[in-house]
Design a protein around this nucleic acid. Sequence first.
DNA 1: CTCTCGATGTTCT
DNA 2: GAACATCGAGAGG
Length: 220
Amino acid sequence: MPRPLPRSFYARDTLTVARELLGCVLVRRVRAGAELRGRIVEAEAYVGEEDKACHARAGRTPRTDPLYGPPGFAYVYLTYGMHHMLNAVTEPAGRPAAVLIRAAEPLDGLERMARGRGFPLDGAAASRSLASGPAKLCQAFGLDLRQNRSDLRGPDLWIEAGESIPDSRVAASPRIGCQTAPAPWDLIPWRFFEADSPFVTPGRAIARKTLGSQRARHRE
DNA sequence: CTCTCGATGTTCT
DNA sequence: GAACATCGAGAGG
């Protein structure tokens, strides 16, 4: 039985939503009785027309229109001509903001996810690469432009509450792929991820303090 | 391990 | 015409 997060969860400050989405479970119904599930381990905040890395920087256009709509709906778009990205629209209608769902730890439906990714499921190494990146996640969960504007309370796609993750295990870093945005938007640490998860975007380890250690830092 | 590069199509200047 | 919230293959250390 679906237990989707309420609309009010998304109607808040985008940084808070991005942080709290960690540990929540993304669910995709592929047909009656068959669901794909993954625990969200990485997410990024994109906030307002003033954020020069956010698509809304160019204002309201046919493409960015969902960002201006009510919270709790999906904003899906195509980039690099071939990759889809899943976002959850946040904040009250009229304020363009969203959280990019970047990576998930597969829980259910791994075989199906692997098929979506185009290779046979083959052990832990493969499960690590099923949804460790925004485009990979969309492939694994079978998401494309058809899910744009779809309601994140189901019935085909939704997000449920999960076990909460303490600050000591959450880290922040600059957003990935935003190097060409003007300062300070290129370096502002609006990417949140589970610090010790092997299911986040791979690549050079970005030295990060956890949210917890930033607090503990006062003791140094 | 790291780095470079091409794929591919929509949106914006 | 350029840029793009990416990925995977291939070359080199």
